[in-house]
Design a protein around this nucleic acid. Structure first.
Lengths: 231, 231
DNA sequence: TAGATTGTTAATCGATTAACAATC
DNA sequence: TAGATTGTTAATCGATTAACAATC
């Protein structure tokens, strides 16, 4: 359904491209800070560590923003990528689970530039509740997990970052979903069950290490295949 | 070079398969804990959230461990996946940058089961140096960053987890590489430069949120495409 | 043997990349 | 105009998946 022309056009951007847009945005920010007004696909691709043809193909999905013979306008490209991945707006984020990982994520100072704002912190530990966590520009008080539903009710469009212990991740996830949250970023090393329509993304830090270990052992055995970066 | 038959065989495992093996291993651990001795590709695939044909194809790269008409032996499969990705051995890991994120990673208690052991912690902050960090089974003292080289010299096969501020990530990375480390997991939102032969993997937590935001905005516009999990 | 399930083939699908016409 | 660089085409490559013969 909803296959009107405009929307169908938006939908044609491949997932692989979407996954690279944040990388381009980050690279563009560096270039802008260095005073570049314009950049060629060659230069931007090299700075981002991708193939120039791939970069141009990726950008072509956003529309035609480059100028032949010249390159891309840095500020314009930042704006259009930002608009595309939705970091032009500011998404409210609620973090559930204020252990070291949750605290690290809360204190991460790059949200503003990336389209997010941490608006609430939740934990179950009685010694944490009420504590103030110093963020980049403000500070937030940790709310009790019993108030999870009322906290989420105050921020209807919230995305939730789940940094609870793995044992309770599923039940907290269920409550978050029941409260109407449609997007969850989980750090619990377990496959969470969510209903259709909820977007779940899982970052498993142990998995990242294991993939690295695999390449390390390949390396040790074979003695270098000139592989530099793996995404 | 080194294209002998045995090694060439090992090298044929696709990266996409490697990236899923930790997921299978995690799922198998859950199944083993639940008392399953044997599991079909159908059941394992469902538990891991992948297509059964894909699972069988992935496992076929490890050799033939299944039994037709029966399924896979859980313990045997755990062992062979573990052997393949190198989590049968125990890799020493050094964490550089003991902020909240570094501390969270140091305290993560799942290393033993996943093939890692945190053997040293390094930071530059004078108030952190010498502090004991309580790990799952032991505790470790934070070493000064000036001792980075001597710390790494004591653990020659070390993988390094880089959780420093983004501003110093490249220079710390350089020192780590100079000290002979060949595998780095970085959490700094910047594209690090490493020489050929060094394997670098970058986890950019802001990027994860941005990709989620994209799908969230698609969702809001189009009203559900029944997408559940995105890897 | 009958039923179940693997391992593999072949078809499909999507992503990457080189090449170049379009055009600034 | 001449040089540079995009946007797009078409070829290649790799990954996914359905289907089924092999076989426990």
């Amino acid at each position: 359904m909803a296959e009107s022309d405009g929307i169908a056009l938006l939908r044609t951007i491949p997932d692989a491209t979407i996954a690279r847009l944040p990388l381009y945005l980050r690279t563009l920010t560096t270039l802008a800070d260095a005073g570049h007004d314009t950049v060629s696909s060659q230069a931007l691709a090299e700075a981002a560590g991708v193939n120039p043809a791939q970069l141009r193909k990726d950008l072509s999905h956003l529309g035609s923003y480059g100028v032949r013979g010249v390159g891309y306008d840095v500020a314009h490209l930042q704006a259009s990528i930002g608009a595309q991945i939705g970091s032009a707006q500011e998404w409210p984020v609620v973090i559930v689970g204020m252990g070291n990982l949750g605290t690290a994520l809360a204190r991460y100072s790059g949200y503003a530039v990336r389209g997010f704002r941490v608006v609430a912190l939740v934990d179950v530990a009685s010694d944490l509740i009420g504590q103030q966590v110093q963020l980049a520009t403000t500070s937030l008080e940790i709310s009790p997990e019993s108030a999870l539903e009322s906290v989420l009710a105050r921020f209807p469009a919230a995305m939730v970052v789940l940094t609870t212990p793995v044992e309770v991740a599923q039940q907290v996830c269920d409550r978050v979903v029941a409260a109407g949250v449609r997007s969850i970023l989980s750090f619990a090393p377990v496959l969470l069950q969510v209903p259709d329509g909820v977007v779940l993304r899982t970052v498993d830090l142990g998995r990242e290490l294991q993939i690295l270990a695999y390449h390390q052992s390949r390396h040790a055995e074979i003695g270098g295949d000139d592989r530099k970066e793996i995404w």
